[in-house]
Amino acid sequence: QVATSTVRILGMTCQSCVKSIEDRISNLKGIISMKVSLEQGSATVKYVPSVVCLQQVCHQIGDMGFEASIAE
């Protein structure tokens, strides 16, 4: 089973930030795809909930120095 959710990301300033986040999160087990939008300050994450949760994704992004939260 696959889920798609949006994560809000604060602190991104350039495409390099976007690429860094996409590269790191895409390597997590259970992540199918991730598309980060600098303009919208968010990311669309396609993932397998039984393998990885959005809290883990937000935590990983937080470790990179950005502020991440699950969009309502």
Rank of each mutant, 00 (worst) to 15 (best):
Q1T: 09
V2W: 15
V2Q: 07
A3E: 11
A3H: 11
A3Y: 15
A3G: 04
T4G: 03
S5F: 07
S5E: 08
T6C: 11
T6E: 09
T6K: 10
T6D: 05
T6Q: 10
T6L: 13
V7P: 00
V7I: 14
V7Q: 00
V7M: 14
R8T: 08
R8N: 09
R8H: 09
I9H: 01
I9V: 06
I9K: 00
L10R: 14
L10C: 07
L10W: 15
L10G: 09
L10V: 10
G11Q: 03
G11T: 03
M12L: 06
M12G: 00
M12C: 05
M12Q: 01
M12P: 00
M12Y: 03
T13L: 10
T13Y: 15
T13K: 14
T13P: 00
C14E: 02
C14K: 01
Q15E: 10
Q15A: 11
Q15C: 05
Q15D: 10
Q15H: 13
S16W: 06
S16N: 11
S16R: 14
S16H: 12
S16V: 12
C17Q: 15
C17A: 05
V18Y: 04
V18I: 05
V18Q: 05
V18T: 06
V18K: 08
V18F: 04
K19P: 01
K19G: 05
K19S: 09
K19A: 08
K19L: 09
S20N: 12
S20K: 15
S20Q: 14
S20C: 06
I21K: 01
I21C: 04
E22D: 01
E22A: 06
E22Y: 08
E22L: 07
E22F: 08
D23Y: 11
D23T: 11
D23G: 09
D23N: 13
D23F: 11
R24L: 06
R24H: 10
R24K: 13
R24P: 01
R24T: 09
R24D: 03
R24A: 10
I25A: 01
I25F: 10
I25R: 02
S26C: 08
S26T: 11
S26V: 08
S26L: 10
N27V: 12
N27Q: 14
L28Y: 05
K29R: 13
K29P: 12
K29F: 13
K29Q: 10
K29E: 11
K29V: 11
K29D: 12
G30I: 09
G30D: 01
G30S: 03
G30C: 08
G30M: 07
G30H: 03
I31L: 03
I31W: 04
I31Y: 03
I31N: 00
I32Q: 02
I32T: 02
S33M: 09
S33W: 11
M34K: 00
K35M: 07
K35A: 08
K35S: 09
K35H: 10
V36P: 00
L38Y: 09
L38I: 06
L38M: 06
E39F: 12
E39D: 11
E39V: 10
Q40P: 04
Q40M: 12
Q40T: 12
Q40D: 10
G41N: 12
G41W: 07
S42Y: 11
S42E: 12
S42V: 10
S42G: 06
S42A: 10
S42M: 14
S42L: 14
A43P: 03
A43D: 04
A43M: 08
A43C: 05
A43G: 13
A43N: 02
A43S: 04
A43R: 03
A43K: 01
T44M: 12
T44C: 12
T44F: 12
T44H: 08
T44S: 09
V45M: 05
V45A: 02
V45H: 03
V45Q: 02
V45W: 04
K46V: 15
K46F: 13
K46D: 05
K46M: 15
K46P: 04
Y47R: 00
Y47M: 02
Y47H: 02
Y47E: 00
V48N: 15
V48E: 15
V48P: 00
V48A: 08
V48Q: 12
V48C: 10
V48D: 15
P49Q: 07
P49E: 07
P49L: 07
P49T: 08
P49Y: 07
S50C: 05
S50I: 06
S50F: 08
S50G: 11
V51K: 07
V51S: 04
V51M: 14
V51N: 02
V51F: 07
V52I: 14
V52N: 00
V52H: 01
V52S: 01
V52R: 01
C53T: 15
C53Y: 06
C53N: 12
C53V: 08
Q55D: 09
Q56F: 15
V57A: 01
C58Q: 10
C58A: 10
C58I: 15
C58P: 04
C58T: 11
C58H: 06
C58E: 09
H59E: 14
H59N: 14
Q60I: 15
Q60L: 15
Q60W: 13
Q60H: 09
I61F: 04
I61C: 04
G62K: 15
G62F: 12
G62N: 15
D63E: 14
D63S: 12
D63H: 15
D63M: 15
M64D: 02
M64L: 13
M64R: 01
G65F: 05
G65S: 03
G65M: 04
G65I: 04
G65V: 04
G65L: 05
G65A: 03
F66T: 02
F66P: 01
F66G: 02
F66H: 01
F66C: 03
F66S: 01
E67Y: 14
E67R: 14
E67S: 13
E67H: 12
E67P: 09
E67I: 13
A68W: 08
A68L: 05
A68V: 12
A68T: 09
S69H: 12
S69N: 07
I70L: 10
I70S: 07
I70V: 12
I70N: 05
A71K: 08
A71H: 07
A71M: 12
A71S: 11
A71C: 11
A71L: 14
A71W: 14
E72S: 11
E72F: 12
E72L: 10
E72T: 13
E72Q: 10
